[in-house]
Nucleic acid binder design. Structure first.
Length: 117
DNA sequence: CTTGTGATTGTTGTC
DNA sequence: GACAACAATCACAAG
């Protein structure tokens, strides 16, 4: 069984403190953006269904409804979504590699680093 | 080695 | 463009 000794891995319930959440300023220059979450894929597929039955539902409805359904799903139902997440993880891993590569190596040089910003 | 934190992802809708 | 609840995550950092 999965050693879940570390149960408190979850974030504190209060994260919404103040300012600043979405679109965070990347602290790292080459920020290796992590992979997407199963929820992300789940929403992509479900957003259509949710909206189909809740054409009036805006963000709040969809968000809560989506989350509720998500928990209702079983692992097998989440499987496809999770699998996609895993796949994306590989992609993210590649990003990290590139990030790590530049980070460590260095040389300075030139190259094209950066684009614009 | 263990634990925690932060940063990130995607959806819709409005100003 | 940014932010709002909802959920996952998990790579990295620090002790």
């Amino acid at each position: 069984m999965p050693k879940e000794a570390t149960k408190s891995t979850r974030r504190k319930a209060a994260d919404k403190e103040k300012g600043g959440r979405a679109s965070k300023a990347k602290k790292d220059k080459n920020a290796p953006k992590r992979a997407l979450s199963a929820y992300m894929f789940f929403s992509q597929d479900w957003r259509e269904r949710v909206k189909a039955e809740n054409p009036d539902a805006g963000f709040g409805e969809i968000g809560k409804l989506l989350g509720t359904k998500w928990k209702e799903l079983n692992e097998e139902e989440k499987k496809p979504y999770v699998q996609q997440a895993e796949k994306d993880r590989e992609r993210a891993d590649k990003e990290k590699k590139d990030y790590d590569k530049k980070k460590t190596a260095d040389s300075g040089s030139a190259d094209g680093e950066d684009d614009d910003e």
